[in-house]
Each structure stands twice: as C-alpha cells, then as structure tokens.
Nucleic acid binder design. Structure first.
Lengths: 361, 361
DNA sequence: TTGTATGCGTTATCAA
DNA sequence: TTGATAACGCATACAA
C-alpha cells in the first residue's frame, strides 16, 4: 500500500530514486560518494543531488548502521557531571567528536555503580562505536571492561587509569611538585597540606610530588600541618571539607603561612575558613588549588592553581578512540595508550611572597 | 556463510531462538513482553529468558528502530554549555530521561548558527524521538522549527520562548521584582542596576519587574545608576562586563549602597570591582545576582541571588517532550505548553541592611 | 555506467 | 500457544 503522497514523514532513498528516475543503488552510491561513484556520469550525480536536496532527503542513520555496522555515535559516560572538572572535558570531547561527525550519547552515573552499569548497557544497545569514560571521582571496577573488550569497542578513560584500557590523565606528581615549588619559591616554609580523599586516584601521586620536592630542598613537613580530606561520593564536598579542616587547624593555633589544597574547591573552602577567622588571603596566608576549574579565575581572591589541560584531555581521548575505530575498520592492530598530560602553574591572587611578620596567629 | 562460532561479535535474537529451540518471533514477543506474551507458556518464557541471559543477548536499538520507528533517543542541543546555567539543567534532563530509558544525544552549538543547524541535522539523521533545546544565550530564528514540525518531533526549549514550540522559563519579571524588593526591604534606596544584554530574552522582563516594583513603592531610579551590559556571544562575559561597568561608575563618584546585577557572573564581576576599589561587600555595598549557579554559594562573599529551579526546568522539559512522544504513539492531539517557573530568593552574605554612614565614596 | 537482488536484526501480521 | 514471513531503509556484490 502506498503512503499518502503529500505528507510523507520521512523521505527515503527510494523517494529520491523514483523522483530522479534512477535506481536506489545509484542514488546510494552517489550520495555516499562511494568508490563506485567514480564511474557515475556527472550529469547523473548532479541530478540525484539536486533531487535529494529538493526533497530534503536525509540518510537514516539506523538503517545505514544495519548494513554498515557504523552507528556514528560514541558513548560518553561521566561519573559525576556536577564536578566542575567535567565541563571543559565535555567541551573538548564534544568538539573533537563534532569534527568527525560523530554524535555523543551522554550519560551521567551520579556516582552510582548500578547506574553506571545500566548506562553502559544502554550505550551498548545503541551500538556506539567507541566509549569515553570520564572517571573523575569514583572507583570503577574491572567488571565493566569485560563487556567492552568482548565487543571490541575502543575505549578511553579520562582521570582514571586502568591497565586494560587507554587513559588520559594529568601528571599529578609533577603538579604536586609545581604547587609546592611555587610556594617554596615565595618563601613559605610553614605550609599546611590538605591531602585528597584516599579513594581518589589523584591523591597519592600529588602527595608524592610534594614529598619528593620537600625532600629535594630539605623542607620539613610538619605532620601536624598535614590534613586529610575524608572519602566522599560528592565531588563538591571538598569545599566544606577544606573549610572544616582549616577551621580545626586554626583552633589549634598552629602557625602556617600557606595552604596547599588538594583541588580548587578545597582551596576555596580553605580560603573561606581563613577569611572568616580574619586571616587575609594572600596577605597573611597563601593558598593554592589544583585543576583550574572555570570559576577559579573569578573567585575572590582569584586562585593560584595547577591547571589540568582539561579540554585537551577530552580531545585526546576522542583521538584515541577514533584511532581505535579506524583500526577496527582497517583490521589493523592497535594498542592501549596511557597518556600523561603536563600540568601548568597558573599564578593569580591567592599566593604572595611571605613577608616578615606575616603569620596567622 | 556462517560466522565463526566462538567469537561472534554480537549475539542476535536469532542466536537466542536457535539456542532455545523457539522461533525468533516467539523470542521477540517474550523479551519485549509484548501483548501476545500473555499467551506464551510460562515454561517457554523462562527458557527464553534464561538463554538470553546466558548468551548475553542485548537488543539492537537500530534494528528495532527500523521496525518500530522508535529510537529511544532524544536530541539535546545546548547553545553554549560553558554557561554555568547549563549544568543543573543538564542534570535535570539527564535524570528524567534516564527514568524513561531514553538516551540523550548531546550537542553544543558554541553559540554558532551553522553549528546549531548542523547538529540539528545530525540528531534528525539519528531519528531522535524528541528534541530539547537549551537556548540560554543566543537568538534562534524560526528556521529551525520548519524541520521539526515537518517531522512531527515534539520539542521543548529551555530559557527561550517561541510561539510555535513548547518552552520552560523562569518568571523573570517576578525574579526582577524579588531582587529589588529584597534590597528595598534592607533599606537600600540608592541602587545601581546592571541590565542584561539587549539580545538576551531575560533582560527585558527582569527590568520590567524592577520598574514595576520601583513604581509601586515610589522608589526613584536614578538613570545615572542604570548600567547596560553590551551584547556578547560569550555567556561568561558578564563577569568582565560587570566589573568594568562598576569600575566606571565608581570613577564617576556616584553614590550607591547596592548593586542589582543581571546575573550571578555579573554580580561577581561587580564585587570584584567594588573590592578592588576598597568598597567592602556587604558592609559598604550590597550586591544581588540572578540564577543561583553552582558556585554562587562558594564565592566570597557568598552571593544573595534569585534562584532559577534549573534542575526542575530540565525535568519539566523532558516531561513535555515525553508527553508529545506518547501522544504521537497514541495518535492523540497534544498542544504546546509555555511554562513559567517560580524563582526563589536565596539570601546569603552579599547583601545586608543599609547602615547609617554606609556609603562608598 | 547503472540496475537487481539480498540481507543487516527486529517486529508485526497472519497462519497453524 | 507458537512459527513463518514480510518489511523497515540502506549498501553492496553482482549482473547487465
């Protein structure tokens, strides 16, 4: 039975074929610029393209997939999008994908394991050609990889490292060193440290960078000035955590001229505590963050921090996955890559050279 | 030709059928719990479900679409995701979609018209069942609607209003009134206003709310204290804009005890300018924002602002679109809805009752 | 240089 | 209560 003429919902390739007087096969070849298009008469091409445009033909990505196995989509699973860390990463991913005409299927696990698994299932049902996981905050166990490698889906993680999948991370150890180096050069010696939650993969290396630098310049780290952020499922908990820890430290009347915080939010919390207690930043106490999230430049005072090249990290993850996709098409071998990106010190208004008499007691 | 036995990439319905000894049709009925499943013997159901699980069968969303016309996906087009406004909206949308097992296809137009159109095309090619446009910052002309209504795709916009498509917005006029009301109640009379860019749809109504309230209490608005943010394609330009405008105002030695800013970023910029000039917030000058973006609670001082229920707005947009999708399936009529959400005053530390001698000259 | 025929994985209609 | 069959829109091997 024929559809009513006027109001066809979608115009298919056959419509173009009928209207142009050629066969669907020819239309397909022309519109996809397939290898065989070399042999099609220019006039034919022109005619078909005109008709396609006239009718407003759009290829049906689904039907196309059924034949070609190419969905032109990539799964994009965030562990917790509320983390300000994620926004630039998302931008980078989106932009790189756009260049390749791939669409991202977006998912946010809300830091919940079952939600993560459910989303994984959903993107697999949609037959994404690749997968990018932004694992900024929580642990993901090896379970997820089974499904991926079983289906040969190229994947990359950002902000988390696993032995069996490609990953993009900042060089946390270097970043930790840079932050302390900066404070040290400004003359700070009594420095408080807020270490990251133990469950977060970044915490260890950053601290190692601190220790190594301290050792190299024979700076003594006072254990009483080493604070520990508790584990938490909320990526924004650092603010309160930093605030509370610094408040406690101030109550103990310990002296320090600088705080090196685990990340930007923690630094902001620390600044809040300091300011509330009448300790001016940076006049009486310097504070450094880590990440350089969007509003670190806007806070008062603006934050000196270690920048992660977040947008680039997103771009790179896409490139890795795209490479995997291409390799699969060409039946090439390809291997896992673990990329460490260089952090960068961004000096703003929250740090200052230590001055004589500067103290916070 | 048969595929190699061991390493079949994907397990199809036929695999389940063969392994279980039933026909693909029966398998389909059982696995989808179709109406006809009522007539299938329980033992059969059980067997099929077991086999499906054993083989790790997952339905192929594409193939399914080809028959059912249902892609279980929704297009999600942001005008500029770098706007902090977007994050809670995204969260709300994602969460609501997840409840319905729909996946979002994510797009970010970077405020570029051609990019917006290209993305529109891409999501149409992927045959999304619905479309949500977060039009927080730029103009979108009527052109886009042609494609949508032609294809009967239910759509909703957030943050922008058009006559021909459903929309969800905050009640800007009420919000504007609330902000001024708050300052007025605190005793402020000499109030500076930073109006939003003219191209932004929110600017007009917010200002109208201000004017109406001022009129109702016979508050005189000094034109010299009314500042105008220039048009800009960058949703984050408000910070610099606010900073610059307030700096200029301070140079003119005009007296004022409060600033009502267009949005939170503008407010932060204003605070920056004030602080730099030695004017303390809120001791010497109160400042209000609008939106209540994530970091407004974290800034120093934390920002008094008018909250938009962003997450709810996302949820509502999804509900509207889902309703449209359902209506389409059931061949029901459905109509456009334009929802205005109630804003909410959030009092934090950037506003304070005007005190005698409070001034900023 | 172009057309015909087939199958991708599903679902829906009909028959058994 | 279940099975055979056709069709969705497209891309390709093969035929013409």
């Amino acid at each position: 039975m024929k559809r009513a003429s006027g109001k066809s919902q979608t115009v298919t390739m056959r419509d173009v074929a009928e209207d142009s007087g050629f066969s669907p096969a020819t239309v397909s070849i022309v519109l996809n610029n397939a290898p065989l298009a070399r042999y099609i008469a220019p006039a034919t091409k022109k005619r078909i393209e005109e008709v396609a445009k006239k009718l407003g033909y759009r290829p049906n990505a689904m039907a196309r997939f059924l034949r070609s196995k190419r969905s032109h989509s990539v799964g994009l699973v965030f562990f917790d999008i509320t983390d300000p860390f994620c926004m630039p990463v998302l931008r980078g991913i989106e932009n790189a994908l756009y260049q390749s005409s791939y669409v991202p299927i977006f998912a946010d696990a809300h830091n919940q394991r079952n939600r993560f698994e459910r989303y994984l299932e959903m993107v697999l049902e949609h037959h994404v050609e690749g997968l990018i996981v932004v694992a900024n905050w929580l642990v993901v166990d090896i379970h997820l990889l089974a499904d991926l490698s079983k289906r040969n889906i190229p994947a990359a993680t950002i902000g988390w490292e696993l032995p069996t999948v490609s990953s993009v991370m900042v060089d946390n150890e270097t970043g930790g060193r840079m932050a302390l180096d900066h404070l040290y050069q400004l003359g700070h010696r009594k420095i408080a440290f807020i270490r990251g939650p133990k469950m977060i993969i970044d915490s260890g290396p950053r601290w190692r960078g601190v220790q190594k630098f301290a050792h190299s310049v024979e700076l003594e780290i006072d254990p009483a000035l080493v604070l520990q952020l508790p584990d938490s499922f909320d990526p924004n908990s650092g603010f309160e955590g930093g605030q509370r820890l610094v408040e406690e430290l101030l109550q103990k009347k310990k002296k320090f001229t600088a705080v090196m915080a685990f990340d930007d939010l923690t630094a902001l919390g620390a600044i809040r505590a300091l300011t509330k207690a009448g300790v001016k930043v940076p006049e009486h106490c310097s504070v450094t963050g880590f990440d350089d999230v969007a509003f670190s430049a806007l806070s008062a005072p603006s934050l000196t921090t270690i920048r992660q090249p977040l947008e680039n990290m997103g771009t790179l993850a896409v490139n890795i996955v795209m490479d995997g996709i291409k390799a699969g098409l060409e039946k090439r071998e390809w291997s896992i890559v673990s990329q460490k990106m260089n952090p960068e010190l961004v000096i703003r208004d929250s740090t200052r050279a230590v001055s004589h008499g500067s103290s916070n007691d």
